[in-house]
Design a protein around this nucleic acid. Sequence first.
DNA 1: TTGTATGCGTTATCAT
DNA 2: ATGATAACGCATACAA
Lengths: 349, 349
Amino acid sequence: MTGTPSESPPRRPVTLDDVARHAGVSQPTASRVLNGSARKVAESYRERVLQAARELGYTPNLPAQAMARGTSRTIALVISLISDPYFSAMAAEIMKQAEALGLHVSIAVTERQADRELDLVRELRGQQPRAIILAGTGYVDPPSEQQLIDELNRYQETGGRVVLISRSDLPFETVDFDNHEGSRQLARELAALGYRRCLVLGSATPLLSMGQRVDGFVTGLVESGVADAATRVHRPGFSWAGAREFVLGLSDDELRDLQLVFAVTDDMALGALAGLRERGLRIPEDIGVAGFDDITTLRDVVPKLTTVHVALNAVAQEAVYRATTTDTVLTRRTVPAYPVLRASTPPIG
Amino acid sequence: MTGTPSESPPRRPVTLDDVARHAGVSQPTASRVLNGSARKVAESYRERVLQAARELGYTPNLPAQAMARGTSRTIALVISLISDPYFSAMAAEIMKQAEALGLHVSIAVTERQADRELDLVRELRGQQPRAIILAGTGYVDPPSEQQLIDELNRYQETGGRVVLISRSDLPFETVDFDNHEGSRQLARELAALGYRRCLVLGSATPLLSMGQRVDGFVTGLVESGVADAATRVHRPGFSWAGAREFVLGLSDDELRDLQLVFAVTDDMALGALAGLRERGLRIPEDIGVAGFDDITTLRDVVPKLTTVHVALNAVAQEAVYRATTTDTVLTRRTVPAYPVLRASTPPIG
DNA sequence: TTGTATGCGTTATCAT
DNA sequence: ATGATAACGCATACAA
């Protein structure tokens, strides 16, 4: 029996039982002072338990705690692509909010594969998280959508919380931006600046929120009296590379005729920007460019890119709040998105 | 409207017991076919169990599994700042590798606060992860370093794995880049291009890897016959803003005399770039700029930034491998880093 | 106030 | 091959 734990400490983690024994109290008493709520432990015992815990380096076994309590302090986050500036910013905000509430975050990535979503949710459910937040963009009518709904419903029925971000296609608590209004306002402001002949880059992947952005932009143009016929909508691959390649595939005549390229994400806008430059065009002298999201990357891009700003922190806060509250009301909260005019779209005409 | 579970009170998740009962077998048998390894269950039973599990939508309770098995399939990742392009790329690679091995990743962020590291490790230990990967940059001699070592040792003694990325200051399995060699080679190549009078931007925060980058760069310059006296090393705040502000604080004379700014991270290099432009300098005509990391953001920066490329995927793969293997050998693996010359540092003089 | 006994969902050690 | 039964670490009714 080694009184001093300096030689060879136990290969087994220190448990509450160890602490209790060390302090000469019962295990429930140790539990009460270390993790319990009601402060009904005698001060003398309390001291000894805390002292013992400190000496032994006790850390609660969270999985065990979760099993006993029936609820964990983990929230699961499903996201499309963590290396994307938009999504990593979103993840950062969510983690910040979660940590402020003493919650741990377990992250899973779909890598933009729609079918991965279902698998991940299934796996994550096994973690027994308090909530599952789906922050990936929603696919329109994926083959496995009903299965996903079933899975999430099953999770919800067993007390779990489901929160969707930026995808209003599923019957669960939802937080999203006002995609339609954001790009509608952007279109109106751009039209006021003189832009008429626009190229809109949507997404080949049928993503709901991206469709809203396209629709909103077109609506804004039409409302501004810009002939619908002058606006061309295309849907290249949903990525920097997809947008760039699309631009590279345009004919010289098509390019020359254009005054503006609006892409539904900044990522795509930057890809288009790269492509336009490869085609020998100067931005913004020869053509304007605008995006959506206002990602941090824009800080280092010249010229400053016009875009639509979304308050990620507000979205994250709302999402985490809904993930933790016990309200059962099925609601949708829409966070405003507003255009930010910058140097990439100066007044013309 | 439905007689089925639509408005039912929070049901209990489906357990192995439910499946067993539904299949008419014992609970251990159900366990064997669903999660066990040895395939010693009669085919008829096997079928029935699988069928029951499917019907009931059974998902193993991972925390319970972990507790019973004594080992989990979770690895914990401690990282500085998830919204930073470098770290988010690192996190993405680690998650990719982990998922390939069927492991879940729990992420915690230090927000660049040195003291947070200890707290986070303590918390994460409670999650009973199979391994803890510390991917934040190591602080030189933080006040709590010994406590951190103690905590990690305690974790390791109870069977956990500890892996450090990009910080060779602690006595644990380590994977890092060859910071010194990378910037040394960069310096030599830049010297060969004619650069003489350089400004080196290190980091005010005492980060080990950043010190190596500064040293390596200076070494490379000296080896190239560039007088040491001509090189000025400064250590502004370790961030985009810090680098920018430093540049803005330089006198016109100081700036005019400079041929190159090398910052120890791309993030800082971009901040310096912004500052230099605000001071009216053209890049690269008036002054060259170089960084370190080769972050994705550089894709959209004009001119293309010279930097030092690090193979994040190799680092991540090595780190996750070490996090899962049971080898006890304490080793350090260094992944090469090599300079990539781009338009921001053309040949001069 | 404190200790005893039980249960959480799973795996593992046993007998059958 | 299969089924009782005992852990795993913790929280909590309940008894003292």
